[in-house]
Write a protein that binds this DNA or RNA. Structure first.
Lengths: 368, 368
DNA sequence: TGCCGGGACGGAAGCGCTTGCGAAAGCGCT
DNA sequence: AGCGCTTTCGCAAGCGCTTCCGTCCCGGCA
């Protein structure tokens, strides 16, 4: 049984196998210049002894660092924890270590974490989460990463970033469109959007998808209330309050991620507004609890775990000249939180009878 | 602005500050043997140049590794992701790196990860999640960790482990008792338990708490159905099916964690059994979505994020002779999923006559 | 048989840092 | 002024590994 005694070194393996340090190193690294017979023997001995190379020595001596740095908004956000799970799976298969750090959706913090990871000499950097509409930050990050890559580092991102590196791109635009079309098909004409912080590319892209869908049906965007709040559950609560207050004729709310959708549902429950009877709610991401909410959440499924896996796999491949891009699929998952537009308008709501700019009811569109 | 050029080394800082490599090293490490004046100058220069030590060289040379290895069941399990969040917070404050790996609740895998982390020369090891009722594994792990600690490594665990190291101990037993008492107070006498895999100390402890409460009320344990399944949502579904089938008189289900509770709720919904009118359900942990389920989940709140923080803080303190133990608090959070025992016994289940959830009349005043 | 080429291996020089130990310098004391 | 002590610093030896380069040996060829 492999019981690694105190500090088992490569030299020990080499001696045991009757070869030199250099040969042992080459044998284990699978480099050529070692006969198959000797290489086999060395590997065998290493195996028996339970030898594991000291990564510090290995890296210091010029080998590539085998740790991957993963930047996420927060690991305790389900969206990111699922991505992290995927990354860790692949890393385990490849014998890599994963270092996780938080950006907190703060561009400056993200840049800081990036520099920290580079200074720590990780071999691979993965950035999960939205890009920012902030030219300065993106430019600085881009420069930092270019430098990192020129020294042999590998990088991949999840989501749209102007970073010039390999990317896994969630179907944000198409997903937003699918969501809006779903609601339009159900007859909704007073739709509001609970959006995350402006400045996140994820928010912008999903929103663009929604807008496209409306435009394609010949509807004006002027009447589409978009409330920007935190891209979190609490942000969803606030957004819903605002929508209820300022746009009382709304019959459907598109939350741009599931966290916000959960907040929206919470607020609606507090107001005793039945979902979907009087208000439809849809989310985005399909985090694992989405199916367990009551009502269960209609949402766009993104393969978060796979996205994590893909990102690391991408980074593991030899670098190509041009950045690669992988699109994830998306899937509209219709559950119980969305339903046909109420036939009877909300009754005696004190503030319910004033006509607002948001009235899309005259517009064309199939009603089911 | 500190723009770390390609490969800034300590020797560069030393030269710039007009001192030797050794002095520079001592100055930055804050060791004595350097005058305050010189030390200040070195620090200043390092700051200006944006110098960050190469951790590989530093560790190889004998300095303590500044990375902490965190073993969790799965990061995409909310319980663990919240713990991980806490650990990462403290790590960021302390300038440490966090490496996360999965055990998958498999004792062998956990041991393997442990060995891997040690081989990787992390400085601190944190094990989150339940211990195992497996003497062999625990003994081996214990030996491994003892060795690790004797070489200067630091260790802390979350949960009951027979590992002889510092530990953060969730109030599992007391929580289990509180849960059972809550249901007994509501009049329930036919209680079933959806328990996780036998062999996990967390499961055993929570179960023991439940048993104690029953015993204190003079109730026999013979009539307490305990169904062991996976400690996950799906395990909860299966457990609920079994309980419904084998113990039809059950009026309350205690799930030993929130994940299982979510599964239980899901199954009950599928069977159109109203909660809490015909069946009360309680969970354990208070993961963040517990409040957003419908009905919202009565559960025991554990401060997961703080537990992560505490564990790392504990490991960061100088080692004491005897293992330290920190108990977390716990709090019974009463929400909508638990209510008084049905006055009318469950009639023959006809799928048509289900009462709509939402009728809370008569329910105990929910907290929050 | 002698020479040359090439494959297989070992010697040894670092990678960037920490740290034990010795040298130098400053101090108070006799 | 001389002694020994303390303080401050530099020298150099590694930490465990990778890799350049040189050496050795063997086979093939003339």
């Amino acid at each position: 049984m492999p019981r690694p005694g105190p500090r088992l070194r490569l030299i020990d393996v080499a001696e045991r196998a009757g070869v030199s340090l250099a040969t042992a190193s080459r044998a284990l690294a699978g480099r050529e210049g070692v006969s198959e017979e000797v290489a086999g023997r060395v590997r065998q001995v290493a195996q028996e002894l339970g030898y594991v190379a000291n990564p510090y020595a290995r890296t210091l001596a010029g080998g590539a660092s085998s740790t991957v740095g993963l930047v996420v908004h927060q690991v305790d956000d389900p969206y990111f924890s699922e991505i992290a799970g995927g990354v860790i799976q692949v890393a385990a298969e490849e014998g890599l270590l994963v270092q996780i750090c938080h950006s907190g959706r703060d561009p400056d913090a993200e840049l800081r974490q990036l520099r920290h990871l580079i200074a720590q000499r990780v071999g691979i950097i993965l950035i999960a989460g939205s890009g920012y509409d902030d030219a300065r930050i993106e430019a600085e990050a881009r420069a930092e990463l270019a430098e990192f890559q020129s020294q042999g580092g590998r990088v991949a991102v999840i989501g749209r970033h102007a970073l010039g590196v390999d990317a896994v791109l969630p179907d944000n635009e198409a997903g937003g469109r699918a969501l809006a079309e779903h609601l339009l098909d159900l007859g909704h004409r007073h739709i509001a959007v609970a959006a995350g912080t402006a400045g996140l590319t994820t928010v912008a892209d999903r929103l663009a998808g929604v807008a496209t869908a409306l435009r394609q049906r010949g509807l004006s965007l002027d009447g589409l209330p978009v409330v920007h709040c935190d891209f979190t559950r609490d942000g969803g609560r606030v957004a819903a309050e605002r929508i209820l207050r300022d746009h009382p004729r709304t019959t459907a709310i598109i939350a741009l991620n599931d966290a916000m959708a959960i907040g929206v549902l919470s607020t609606l429950r507090a107001h005793r507004i039945p979902v979907p009877e009087r208000m439809s709610v849809v989310g985005f991401d399909d985090v694992s609890v989405a199916a367990d909410l009551a009502p269960s959440l209609t949402t766009i499924r993104l393969p978060m775990t796979d996205m994590g896996r893909m990102a690391l796999s991408l980074a593991l491949k030899p670098r190509s000249t041009r950045p690669r891009r992988r699109s994830t699929g998306h899937l509209l998952v219709v559950r119980d939180s969305s339903g046909p537009v109420p036939t009877v308008l909300p009754a005696s709501r004190a503030d319910g009878d004033h006509t607002e700019a948001g009235d899309l009811s005259g517009a064309a569109g199939p009603v089911r």
